[in-house]
């Protein structure tokens, strides 16, 4: 009897091995939505939604921009926080990076004497802007114990203001070819996938990643377990900031212009992507793979609607609904599993 109590695990462990990955259900949702658009495409336009390389590339490019931010925000949410500033940081870093990416001899350049800089300079400037804003977010949250919601809300407003102030609201353009290359073809997609893969590995296989889950799961227990909560949180916010900065570079390179209105509302799409992908706003739960799928779902929905020529206001209504439905469905699945 006693034997069975302690070794009771064996058959169960085996069964567990065959368990489907957590992302499976959300992947089904993605496929389902895509198929619905496929059918509707044939019905309404007599055209395939999925077999449409041009349309799909545009969609994936958009997904990549939101996705870059979403990777960072996923980590922040897992750590028990939130980031509302990412969209504005995209704009700010896009402006700053753009101003260092202009060609030689363009007389209306922001820094006329700094034309034709090597591409690494604007890129690093964009990332630096992201790092600074992220670091400020993290430091204020940790050191002054202000809720993340408030701090990043403040940063959202200020960073947007700063982006406008930087050029007095003027857009920046005339970029070097090297800078434009970043946003050309499928490069943004490659950058996004590389970043997603990198942080997927960080979250799953490094001590830093595990500490983030622990902090989001139970801050006090994390501290008692010897985790330096403050340092890790600041690192997470800084990383997320860098990713927003990177998104700013990519966005401006792809659009061939830096504008202070860029990234508007991206923060909410990024949060939605994370949550649809199974990241719990309560902290301690979430995966990058889920977030990638979540971002794809959002992308498929908006490009699907555009494809069908549906009114953009209606698009937003349905997008909102689908976000909630996706999360409810996920909750339902979790409940049924237990």
């Amino acid at each position: 009897m006693n034997q069975t109590t302690t070794v009771a695990s064996l058959p169960a462990t085996k069964k567990r091995k065959f368990k489907l990955p957590q992302e499976f259900s959300i992947l089904l949702v993605l496929i389902g939505i895509a198929l619905i658009f496929e059918v509707l495409g044939w019905v309404k336009r007599d055209q395939s939604f999925l077999y449409n390389p041009q349309g799909l590339l545009i969609m994936i490019l958009q997904v990549s921009e939101i996705g870059l931010i979403a990777v960072g925000v996923t980590m922040i949410i897992i750590a028990g926080g939130i980031d509302l500033a990412s969209g504005s940081v995209v704009a700010l870093s896009a402006m700053v990076a753009s101003s260092f990416a202009q060609v030689v001899g363009y007389d209306r350049a922001i820094f006329p004497s700094l034309g034709g800089l090597p591409v690494i300079i604007p890129v690093l400037m964009g990332l630096l802007i992201g790092a600074i804003t992220g670091f400020i977010n993290g430091a204020v949250i940790v050191k002054m114990r202000v809720p993340a919601f408030i701090v990043t809300l403040g940063m959202m407003v200020s960073a947007r203001g700063l982006a406008r102030y930087y050029t007095g609201g003027q857009p920046v353009s005339m970029f070097t070819d090297d800078y434009l290359w970043i946003g050309s073809g499928s490069n943004p997609v490659i950058i996004f996938l590389a970043v997603a893969l990198f942080f997927h590995i960080v979250l799953r296989y490094t001590r830093f990643g595990k500490s983030i889950y622990a902090i989001g799961g139970n801050v006090q227990a994390a501290r008692v377990s010897g985790i330096n909560v403050g340092k890790n949180l600041i690192a997470v916010y800084t990383i997320a900031g860098v990713l927003s900065g990177l998104a700013g570079v990519v966005v401006s390179a792809r659009a061939q212009t830096g504008q202070s209105g860029m990234g508007m509302g991206y923060e909410l799409d990024a949060i939605a992507a994370a949550v649809i992908g199974g990241t719990s706003l309560a902290g301690g739960v979430g995966r990058i793979t889920g977030t990638v799928i979540g971002a794809l779902i959002l992308g498929v929905i908006s490009s699907g609607f555009t494809f069908l020529g549906i009114d953009s206001y209606l698009q937003e209504i349905v997008k909102g609904l689908i976000i909630v439905i996706a999360v409810v469905a996920d909750q339902f699945r979790k409940k049924r599993a237990s």
Binding site: G217, N218, Q220, A222, V224, S225, G284
Partner: peptide, 19 residues
Amino acid sequence: KTGLFLSLSVGENMQIASL
């Protein structure tokens, strides 16, 4: 309050302090 990470697995809970 100060021990368990309820959302994490048995293994993760056990190894967190000795990583």
